[in-house]
Amino acid sequence: MVIKTEVCAFSDTRIYPGHGVRFIRRDGQPITLFSAKCKSLLKQRKKPAKLTWTQAWRRLNKKIKVEEVTRRRTRKTTKLNRAIVGASLEEIKKKRSQKPEVRSAQREAAAKEVKARKAANKAAKGSAAAMKAKPTASKQKGGNTKARGGAKR
């Protein structure tokens, strides 16, 4: 059977049933005290950290082992490489291991290529339109380009 004990607010001693005083302060806060000695010293406004026989002093002067409250470790999310559609694991790894400069260069090259392709397409279309309506081609073209820009955004 475990006996329910309380802890003295001044000296940190355990208080067994039938002992101790619970003093209720003016603001309604109860203070449990072990003995009349503790009560007297508390009323004199003594600091327990300055009296050698209290646990507070012993803790301050490193006479007892202080159990540090270990913080719970938060789980960190670990990154894991997995194969995605269209790119196997090895491919991703290969790309990762490349230097960033090389990669950026590659990307630029790819972008340029796409641009060139688009430009070529445009040119082809433009020529087709020009063929259809020759005299007002320049005006129409201007209007067309503006409209396209709006749609893109």
Partner: peptide, 8 residues
């Protein structure tokens, strides 16, 4: 069997 009680 309990802790004594006193008020201010």
């Amino acid at each position: 069997g309990g802790i004594g009680q006193s008020f201010s």
